[in-house]
Design a protein around this nucleic acid. Structure first.
Lengths: 155, 155
DNA sequence: CCTGAAAAGAACTTTCT
DNA sequence: AGAAAGTTCTTTTCAGG
C-alpha cells in the first residue's frame, strides 16, 4: 500500500461523487487512458482505499423519512462498552452512523425512523439491550442541509 | 412517481449496500430477470429515488483523517440564515453533512480535516463567512463506530 | 512497474413476443 | 415480464517506454 499519486487522488475524488461514471469519461478528466483508470480503480478497491460503492436514496421514498441525532453517555468503567455497542449497532439497519467522541457525550449516533413513535421504540430497545448506555440526548432533524460521505484528498 | 413494490424495495436495499453488483446477481436475489432489474434501476434513478451512487473511501488514506461534529446556534431573527448557510456549505468539500435540528443547537455539521490546526482554520473561516452563526460547540471524533447512509425500506 | 491500444469477454440496452 | 439481438463497457493481452 504505497503512495497515491496525482492520478489516484483525482480518480478518488471523482468516484466519490459518481461511481457509475464510465472509465473513459474519468480517463478524459484526469488525462490517462481508460485501461489505466480501470487498473488503478481495481488496485484502489483491493487495497481497501475504496471501501465500498453504494447508492444514496431519497429518504422520503423509503418509509423511514425521519432522522434523529442522538448523544449518549456510557459507563466509563465498563471496559468493552464501545466494542459491544459496535457489534449491536452493526446489526441495526436504523442506525446509520455512530461516532465515539470527546465532549459532553461519549457517542453520537444518527438514526432513521418511520416517525417519532417508531424512534421512541428504537430508543427503548437501544437502552434495554445496551445497559452500558446511561443517558440519551435526542435532536430531531427538521431538514437536511447537506448529506454526503465525501472526503477531500489532500493536495 | 407511484408506489414501490416488493421488488423495488429489495433492489433499493441491495443497491444501498453495493451499487456495483451485477444486475444478474440482483435478479437472482430478488427473483426477477436481469432485464427487469435494469429497467427498474433506470426508473428509480430517473424518479430521483436513487439520488446518487458514490464510493466510500478510507479516510486515513485521504490526508483528511480527522472528523469533527459541530453544534451551531444561529440567529433566529435572521430569516434566510439557513438558506445562506446551505449555499455556503454546499461549496465546502470539508463539510460532509449538515442537519437543521431541534434542541440545544440549531445546526449539526460533520466536518473532515487534516488535523486539529486545520479544523481550527476551517472553524475560523466558517464564523467569518457566516455571521448568522452565533456559537459553535465542537466534538472531536476519536473513532468511527459505524459509517453509512443506508436507509431501511419499510415493509 | 506502468502506460496505451487492440482483442476478448462481460454487462447493459433495446427490441420483440 | 423474459429472452435474444445489438451495443457499450470492462478485462485481458501485448508491445513499448
Amino acid at each position: 500500500m504505497e503512495q497515491l499519486d496525482r492520478f489516484d487522488r483525482e480518480i478518488i475524488e471523482i468516484i466519490q461523487r459518481n461511481c457509475q461514471m464510465k472509465a473513459e469519461a474519468m480517463a478524459e478528466e484526469v488525462g490517462l487512458s481508460a485501461s489505466a483508470v480501470q487498473r488503478r480503480l481495481k488496485r484502489l478497491r483491493e487495497d481497501g482505499i475504496i471501501k465500498g460503492e453504494v447508492a444514496i436514496i431519497d429518504r422520503k421514498s423509503s418509509g423511514h423519512p425521519m432522522v434523529f441525532i442522538v448523544g449518549m453517555e456510557i459507563e466509563r468503567d465498563n471496559y468493552d462498552a464501545l466494542a459491544r455497542f459496535r457489534l449491536w449497532a452493526e446489526r441495526q439497519d436504523h442506525v446509520q452512523q455512530v461516532y465515539y467522541v470527546t465532549g459532553q457525550v461519549d457517542l453520537i449516533a444518527i438514526i432513521t425512523a418511520r416517525d417519532v413513535e417508531h424512534y421512541d421504540d428504537i430508543a427503548a430497545v437501544l437502552m434495554a439491550e445496551n445497559p452500558q448506555i446511561r443517558r440519551m440526548h435526542t435532536n430531531v432533524v427538521l431538514r437536511d442541509i447537506k448529506l454526503s460521505l465525501f472526503v477531500p484528498m489532500a493536495k
